[in-house]
Design a protein around this nucleic acid. Structure first.
Lengths: 121, 121
DNA sequence: TATATTCGCAGGTGCGCATATGACGATAAT
DNA sequence: ATTATCGTCATATGCGCACCTGCGAATATA
């Protein structure tokens, strides 16, 4: 970012989430959304998250489903885990991952539905 | 899951969107979603798109809103236009942009609501 | 004048590779 | 029987390298 960036001084603080959609965006909100979008901007991660949409799977299974090597899947899962999008639980030698929160699920559905519209439209 | 599951041959044509969410993802679908996510993985573009959520604005206004220079805003708008997320119409010397399709709107709302949850949670 | 396009550069990211950590099973020594 | 050691499988991590992307500056176009 340039040093002379005009800071969007939004001092509105206490608003209901009901009319949040009318509000301007806070920097943290944009940052969080951008981070999530950035993580979703990868085919392998999308396939991994989609596989985790309705199941808890280990790294090897996710790798096979996503069509990548377990090492690569592990790297992606580490990023997703650090971002709080997934959680992993040890089960013996394996680690079983699952989605964190319901928002991501609906977000994925919405996005891929939108994508399907774009493809066939 | 056996080892012999590979290319999602896209022969399923007539499916209801209702059980689409149970389907496997096609490569084109993933590609389209990843492209969209990639475009949304930028703070300036998110702010631009959010500003276009319920209004039609020109480049200068969008630049001021997004906190960037008009040149930069134009570059972002060019990408968004090429991807079909926005459309621009000439109005004299200016070009007025607007969102294309309702899916993007709901996707933005969903994502930023998710982001807001992450921030305050 | 307002937008658009092109080019060059710095920064970020995914992948392949090698390696480390951790857990389970088997086997052998005490 | 206990435990110590080895080997292996599953996952995680660090490194180097191409590749992509956003910004700035200059230029073109309407």
């Amino acid at each position: 970012m340039a040093a002379s960036e005009r800071v969007n001084s939004r001092q509105v603080k206490s608003r209901e989430p009901a009319d949040r959609h009318t509000e301007d965006l806070s920097a943290e909100q944009v940052d969080a959304a951008v981070t999530t979008f950035g993580l979703l901007a990868d085919a392998t991660r999308v396939r991994i998250l989609w596989a985790l949409r309705d199941a808890e799977l280990d790294v090897a299974t996710l790798a096979e489903t996503a069509g990548c090597r377990p090492t690569v899947a592990s790297q992606h899962l580490a990023k997703l885990r650090l971002a709080g999008l997934v959680v992993g639980e040890r089960d013996g030698r394996r680690v079983v991952y699952r989605l964190q929160g319901a928002h991501l699920r609906s977000l994925l559905t919405e996005a891929l539905f939108h994508a399907d519209h774009q493809v066939s439209g």
